[in-house]
Amino acid sequence: MGESIAITSGKGGVGKSSTIIGIGMILAQMGYRVCMIDMDLGLKNLDVMMGLQHRVLYDLKDVMDGKCTLSRAILQDKQQDNLYLIPACKTIHIASFQGDHFEEIVQSLKQSFDYVLLDTPAGMESGFLYSIRCVNKAVLVTTLDVTSLQDCDRIIGILMKEGMEEISFVVNRMNVHLIEKGISVPLEEAKKWLSVEFLGYVFDDEEVMRSNNHGTPVVLKRDTLLYSCYYSIVKNMLGERVELPKYKEKSLLQKLFG
């Protein structure tokens, strides 16, 4: 029986989708079978960010409506054999979403996959509420912006109220220079603020946006600092404590040519 984990956030725009792709791909590279579910009902991002948008024939709604079997809606990643995706649907009305049926889908996936990762909508949207009913663990994505941390803290409180015990967080787009200038909240202060398990951080890097726009996740390049960030997050998530990577200033040539 596999494990289901919600990857969520308190607010949008913090890089949650790029984080779930990074986590999912690292797990797959380690040999685990991973299925990601795009739960942004009415929107869809993961298939585009993975370069799979032209292969989408069926989506989550089609499975729930009985238009196709679960297996026919699952897309295999082009780069990583162990990584799969169930895309979201652009045209779903939340009133027609059947939460009980979705729980059955997640349970069925756990029979075939080691990890089922749910990319939930930010905040308190219905997709978020349906998602947390199907998991016993949540990983929150935040930046070191005050509003992002405040919203993240609120979501942690809601998860605790729902009885969830395994809650952790990841800091995305960490900018060392902004911390030094006193613009961003210091990392240690953020840890005290949220007071749940800290898994790691991903440094602010334009390469993430470039990779997402081209459908080529940054973790495909294993000799980079960004890969080390995601790798350490996954290792810590698995309970194998590792040292987090240190920030290294890019040279002029690296900035110009990536």
Rank of each mutant, 00 (worst) to 15 (best):
I92E: 06
K67V: 13
D81T: 13
G66Q: 06
N45P: 01
Y84H: 15
K235N: 14
P121D: 02
M36W: 00
R33N: 07
N212M: 10
D145P: 09
M49R: 00
I156M: 04
E249A: 11
H93A: 11
S211N: 12
R222I: 01
G12N: 06
I26T: 08
G99H: 01
E243V: 11
L199Q: 09
D40V: 03
G13V: 11
S184V: 03
N236I: 04
P121E: 09
T19G: 00
I167T: 05
G239I: 11
L109S: 04
I5G: 03
K246L: 14
D40K: 11
A95L: 13
K221L: 10
G51N: 10
K191P: 00
D38L: 02
I183L: 10
L117K: 06
G258W: 11
V63N: 03
I74V: 15
D40F: 02
A190C: 07
L75E: 08
G24H: 04
L27M: 13
P245V: 13
N45G: 08
N82H: 15
L118T: 12
N175S: 13
N172F: 08
K61C: 05
S211Y: 08
L226H: 00
M160Y: 08
A95S: 15
S184R: 05
L178Y: 10
V139C: 00
R210P: 03
D38V: 09
A122G: 09
G200K: 11
E240D: 15
S9N: 06
I5C: 05
Q107V: 02
Y84T: 05
K16N: 01
H93E: 12
N45Y: 05
T147V: 13
S112P: 05
Q254F: 00
E165S: 15
V48F: 14
D145K: 14
L41Q: 05
H214P: 08
E243H: 01
M30T: 09
I183S: 06
F128T: 11
D40N: 15
